[in-house]
Design a protein around this nucleic acid. Structure first.
Length: 877
RNA sequence: GCGGGCGUGGCGGAAUGGUAGACGCAAGGGACUUAAAAUCCCUCGGCCGCAAGGCCAUGCGGGUUCGACUCCCGCCGCCCGCACCA
């Protein structure tokens, strides 16, 4: 008897060795079959794989294995996003070299991943901290530089005082560093920038073509790029500033409200503000005050609108009114021109500002309900006493030649008039599109990153390192005794000869933002060991990634940078595609209950005993018996101590159980709660399938028997269910609805278990084998080891992993009779079994003849009978 | 503030205008066992009823429709993203 308990530890190891030995998952660049590239966001080697990774890779592996079974040439690689600050933090804390720490972690995590039985082409493994990888990244940087896609400019940067480094805007969350959580300061530094804004328009427009991306992510990217159409207007100075400018330029999207202008305001960082402050200490103090104001949500929410009158004035372009120029704390230098015209009537900030400084509030747009039958004069008179500016739609008032126009027409009129006039030799107004997106500052004052291949020479400036000198390698002999960048302090590394003039010069000591590393790794996987960044033919053949899978936390940064990088690589001739990821899926997190003791300390699940159920559940410390409070479901994290290690699960139940469980209950985009009961349930299923198949294997006819010409009813019924399941599971896997596919497979298992006891004719034996094999091949993507073991005892010498996906016999999807629900007034009252091709009249009369229908009709004739063929009958009484 | 999403049994969730609650978990009952584990079988939204059957039910209130978890309008609650972007 082969019905001993299934031993996942032994079985999984054995089949993993077989897969490895046969190089089953190595993708060949010359394979003539159509390609399919499935990729999960590569992990940061933080120490150990956690269960969230496991879910992510399980999903990708299901797709990879399924597509392989469908005959695609599948590329499914894995690598390591290996540069970054935790390695340096570890170096400082534990006196271990970042390189050693990183490679140790990679070794550990690689072994953990291998235990999961993922169908990965390990021959393509890469680590971004490997000189083999970052050498090519340095080439890309130099190519981008030559192509004009790199900028070096002084810029106000977000400085993290704890990590002692610059942060991208995207890395500042609520005014705090995304890693350290420390309040971010503002500093002026010379930085390297990648000119992502060159592609603002293209990156925005192309979002519409990303059909297999979640709407949510597309929307987030759209908002992040933040396009707005408006008008750049030049206001002639009446009292000129010390800079000597003739005009004050502003950007606005509400030029229709130009007659409502009652002041001008510039940012505290505007050159005019800076110039005025030189001779005005009070203004200088005001500007300083503005800078210290936080950028956190609360700070912005509660910040009062404040301004400082510069004494400068401008002339209104249409009515010659003189408008005062303020420096105002709410005007941002980073957007538009850093200056605005204030229209208190129709902008809440300007409204608040005007109230505070006693400026005129002139409504110039009135809503239709006031214009049509309302008391316009009274509305205008009371306007300034309101609390809120009117920002809705309406028609123009108080606006000279614009009066009566719609907002859109007024905008058009103002733009046309200002464009046709000029101050000096420049037009007074110009239509302009502005983007919120800023250039990407990539300089980091850090050791553990890709060195920027530049040498600074006093005479020649910033000179690229010649390609023959690449890679610029990180030095190994470094110390982490002080915060800041160890490369700066290195005795010799930064000394270099200028490649142009040969004089002593200084090597760039900043390294690249690690988001650069992850912006092109998907392309590198196509030729991971080549001595150029890509091979154009190969990369063009594999890209775009057909299915990319990762967390929603990368919805903006990583995905936007990768989209930009792909375009930059296109411009520099490294590939010929635009979009890196044709399909994107953002999976949910794995969450777990949290537990705390009376002292408020977090207690890890392994040390917790839970009793009772539902609202009566109580938690105790497993050893001390101390009562614990059960907290919220939270993302597994070290700080909450609610993590479960994958090896705990694979050790106890095997990888298949873990994979099956993580995919089974929740839809993949939603969070899944890790529960012991759920895992045990999944494991019971593994054992049950094993028992079922091994019992069946003893009685089934051998594989490869000719299909019987005819089938009896029990066999036919089984076959129908099998083929319906094949059809459904196929559709579900195509759409990544793993939970539904699994529900179907549970059902098929139940059907097969019942059928196994039924009958034993030749035709039935054949149908049972067909059903068993279909079941095994269909669950193989989720439980690949169990599938191999089942496949073997079903009498096959081949591997389940190499077996083609079963074909649906379309005839078996159609049935002769159908069970129709019969409703009376929209409520189900009876059922009707009838031929699928029955005429509507026949269905109708059969339905009306049913006893319950007659009962509800109470002898009356129905008013109407709705027959939806093969779906439902509704009798309207 | 702006934008987006979600709300279904004890729980995770099915059902994308057509039988609400597939499938799983938990729970209860039974069989097997000296016993336990494992396994197998049955029950499992609420209420009324011996039963047949009926009534109520997808956050709340309206609407469209022969028919609404699903579409529309208005509330309530929760979650996410962006945030002084002119």
């Amino acid at each position: 008897m082969s019905t001993e308990r299934y031993n996942p530890r032994e079985v999984e190891q054995r089949w993993q060795a077989v897969w490895d030995e046969r190089r089953l998952f190595a993708a060949d660049n010359d394979d003539p079959r159509p390609k399919y590239y499935v990729l999960e966001m590569f992990p940061y080697p933080s120490g150990r794989i956690h269960i969230g990774h496991t879910r992510n890779y399980a999903m990708g592996d299901v797709v990879a294995r399924y597509k392989r079974a469908r005959g695609w040439n599948v590329l499914h690689p894995m690598g390591w996003d290996a540069f970054g600050m935790p390695a340096e933090n570890a170096a400082m804390q534990n006196k271990i070299h970042p390189k050693e720490w990183t490679y140790d972690n990679i070794a550990t995590m690689r072994e953990q991943l291998k235990l999961m039985g993922l169908s990965i082409d390990w021959s393509r493994e890469l680590a971004t901290c490997d000189p083999e990888y970052y050498a090519q990244q340095q080439k890309l940087f130099l190519d981008f530089l030559a192509a004009g896609l790199v900028d070096r400019k002084t810029a106000k940067v977000n400085w993290d005082p704890v990590d002692q480094t610059v942060l991208a805007n995207e890395q500042v969350i609520d005014g705090k560093g995304w890693r350290s959580g420390a309040p971010v300061e503002s500093r002026e530094l010379t930085q390297w920038f990648l000119k992502i804004t060159e592609y603002s328009e293209e990156l925005l427009d192309a979002i519409g073509d990303l059909e297999r991306w979640p709407d949510r992510v597309r929307l987030m990217q759209r908002n992040w790029i933040g396009r707005s159409e408006g008008l750049r207007i030049r206001f002639a100075f009446d009292t000129a500033p010390p800079t000597g400018d003739a005009c004050l330029e502003v950007f606005t999207t509400r030029h229709d409200t130009l007659f409502g202008a009652s002041f001008m305001a510039v940012s505290p960082d505007h050159p005019i503000a800076t110039a005025c402050a030189e001779t005005d200490p009070e203004l200088a103090a005001f500007i300083q005050e503005c800078r210290t104001l936080g950028t956190s949500a609360e700070a912005i929410e509660t910040a009062e609108k404040k301004g400082y009158d510069t004494g400068l004035t401008v002339r209104h372009p249409f009515d010659d009114r003189i408008l005062k120029v303020y420096v105002a704390n709410f005007v941002l230098m980073g957007y538009g021109t850093g200056a605005i015209f204030g229209c208190p009537g129709h902008d809440q900030r300007d409204f608040d500002f005007a109230k505070k400084y006693g400026l005129k509030i002139i409504p110039v747009v009135a809503p239709d309900e006031v214009l049509n039958g309302g008391d316009l004069a009274a509305w205008v008179a009371a306007y300034a006493d309101q609390r809120e500016a009117f920002v809705g739609d309406g028609r123009m008032i108080n606006s000279d030649f614009l009066n009566g126009m719609s907002i859109a027409d007024a905008k058009e009129e103002v733009a046309a008039r200002l464009e046709s006039r000029a101050i000096g030799n420049a037009p007074e107004g110009a239509r302009e599109v502005n983007y919120r997106l800023r250039d990407w500052g990539i300089s980091r004052q850090r050791y553990w990153g890709c060195p920027i291949p530049i040498i600074h020479c006093d005479d020649c400036g910033a000179v690229p390192v010649p390609e023959t000198d690449l890679p610029v390698r990180l030095p190994d002999d470094i110390d982490f005794d002080k915060p800041g960048n160890p490369l700066d302090r290195h005795a010799t590394w930064s000394k270099a000869a200028c490649p142009q003039c040969g004089k002593p010069a200084r090597r760039e000591t900043d390294t690249m933002d690690t988001f650069v590393d992850s912006s092109w790794y998907f392309a590198r996987f196509t030729t991971p060991h080549l001595d150029t960044p890509t091979n154009r033919d190969v990369v063009n053949a594999w890209l775009p990634v057909d299915q990319y899978i990762g967390g929603i936390e990368h919805a903006i940064l990583h995905l936007l940078y990768s989209r930009f990088f792909t375009r930059a690589m296109r411009k520099t001739g490294h590939l010929d595609i635009d979009e890196p990821f044709a399909g994107l899926f953002t999976q949910g997190m794995v969450v777990h209950e949290t537990y705390r003791n009376a002292a408020g300390e977090w207690i890890e699940p392994a040390a917790v005993r839970v009793e009772g159920q539902d609202s009566d559940r109580k938690a105790f410390h497993a050893e001390t018996g101390e009562p614990l409070t059960i907290g919220a479901l939270e993302k597994m994290s070290k700080s909450r101590r609610n993590t479960v290690g994958p090896e705990d699960i694979t050790g106890l139940y095997g990888a298949d159980t873990a994979r099956w469980f993580m995919l089974s209950d929740s839809p993949p985009e939603r969070d899944v709660e890790w529960t012991d009961a759920g895992v045990e349930g999944a494991h019971r299923h593994v054992q049950r399938v094993w028992r079922l198949i091994s019992r069946l294997a003893e009685t089934l006819p051998p594989p490869g028997q000719a299909k019987p010409a005819t089938f009896g009813d029990p066999a036919l019924e089984l076959r129908r269910h099998v083929h319906r399941t094949i059809d459904n599971v196929t559709q579900d896997l195509e759409r990544l609805r793993f939970n539904r596919a699994i529900a179907q497979l549970y059902e098929l298992t139940n059907v097969l278990a019942n059928a196994a006891n039924a009958s034993d004719g030749t035709d039935f034996g054949w149908a049972l084998r067909e059903a068993s094999e279909a079941l095994v091949v269909m669950f193989a993507p989720m439980m690949p080891h169990l599938a191999e073991e089942c496949w073997r005892i079903l009498g096959h010498e081949t591997l389940a992993a190499e077996t083609a996906w079963p074909d649906v016999e379309p005839d078996l999807l159609t049935v002769e009779t159908v069970l129709l629900p019969v409703q009376v007034n929209g409520k189900k009252r009876a059922e009707l079994t009838i031929a699928v091709d029955a005429s509507e009249e026949d269905v109708q009369s059969a339905a009306l003849a049913l006893e319950p229908v007659q009962r509800f009709l109470e002898g009356r004739a129905p008013r109407r009978v709705v027959v939806v063929p093969n779906r439902i009958v509704n009798v309207v009484a």
